[in-house]
Simulated scan of single mutants.
Amino acid sequence: CYTLYQYNLSYYNGKTLDPLQHHSLWGVEWGLHFPTANGEYQSPINLNSREAQYDPSLLDVSLSPNYAVCRDCEVINDGHTVRIILKSKSVITGGPLPSDHEYELHEVRFHWGKENQRGSEHTVNFKAFPMELHLIHWNNTLFTTLEEALGKKNGVLLIALFVQIGKEHLGLKVITEVLQDLQYKGKSKIIPCFNPNTLLPDPLLRDYWVYEGSLTTPPCSEKVTWILYRYPLTISQLQIEEFRRLRSHVKGAELLEGNDGLLGDNFRPTQPLSDRLVRAAFQ
């Protein structure tokens, strides 16, 4: 069983898959092995700001994150991305979410490019950002685990934040400072303290888009609610370079010809919007 955080892309049904050899291969073969990846409501998408429909009802109940500072968080290089596994209970309610439903934050994931011109999974008016981070939540009102919520109506919420290059991000400093210890696939480190609130934009800059989509990694389950903040976070060039130094293989592994082993360009290409509506909580 391949879940959101237990899949192994390197070997599936007797076939070797290495989508990280080059960014153009990331996600290309997934539909052969994970039928859901061929669905009509896949993510990421290009957000066309002119075609997004302003929905004032999104403002009736404000989106309310109630994130707790996490003690002893685990940071992992799984060969595909960097993951922060949160131990303390952080939740979010309101906005487009069903009333009286609470969504619990499970982990944070990063997608980035080997160059600043690319890296984000979603694009805005066909513009890519150097990085995108995902806060993965599950509905703990209806379900008891993230696995149980996958593919179910109102089961999973992903909050996406675009990242641009500029000044250092202090909240992510505790992560970027330990990446040198996670150089190879399978490496992990416990950090004493991480505050997920620092990943949210200033309260005055919390305009967002919302649409229904899927996970962007296998098994690509659909029925995922996506909330994408309009205003990006800022990290420094030095911070993103720490991500680009990571490797997608275990230490000592032999690399295929043409594969530099560096982890990056781990974004899925944008998928057709089909008949979906993108709503905006701002005009």
Rank of each mutant, 00 (worst) to 15 (best):
E212Q: 13
V224H: 06
G213R: 03
I240Q: 07
Q183K: 13
T216F: 10
V210L: 08
S188K: 15
T234D: 07
L205V: 01
F194L: 09
E242M: 08
P192A: 03
L238A: 15
K251G: 10
C220G: 14
Y229K: 00
L233G: 09
L233H: 12
V250F: 14
Y184R: 06
Y208L: 04
V224A: 03
P218A: 10
C220T: 07
K187W: 14
I191N: 01
Y229D: 04
E212T: 07
R206S: 06
D202M: 11
R245P: 02
H249E: 07
C193Y: 09
I227L: 04
N195K: 12
S221K: 08
K185D: 08
L215R: 11
P203W: 01
T198I: 01
F243E: 15
Y211M: 01
L204A: 13
I190A: 04
T216Q: 12
P192N: 07
E241N: 15
D207R: 02
Q183G: 02
R206M: 04
C193N: 14
Y184F: 15
S248Q: 06
L255W: 06
L246E: 09
P192R: 07
S248T: 10
R206E: 04
Q237D: 10
L228V: 04
P196C: 05
P196M: 07
Q180F: 14
I190S: 06
L233I: 10
L200M: 11
K223M: 11
E241T: 00
E212L: 12
D207E: 02
F243C: 14
A253I: 01
R247Q: 08
Y229E: 04
F194D: 03
I240C: 07
H249R: 07
E212H: 13
L228M: 03
L199I: 13
V210A: 03
F243H: 13
P196A: 06
L255Y: 04
E254N: 12
R244G: 05
L233M: 12
D181K: 11
L233W: 13
K223S: 09
Y231D: 06
Q180H: 15
E212S: 10
Y208G: 00
P196S: 05
E241V: 00
P218Y: 05
C220M: 15
N197F: 08
L182Y: 11
Y229G: 01
S221H: 01
L215V: 05
P203A: 01
V210R: 12
G213E: 00
Q180W: 15
H249G: 03
K223I: 00
E222Q: 14
K189M: 04
Y184H: 12
S188T: 13
E254T: 15
W226F: 06
F243M: 13
R244Y: 14
S188G: 02
I240S: 07
P201Q: 02
D202S: 12
Y229V: 01
T217M: 09
D181P: 09
T216C: 09
G186S: 05
V224L: 10
S236A: 12
W226C: 05
P203Y: 00
H249V: 10
R230Q: 05
V224E: 02
R230H: 00
F194G: 04
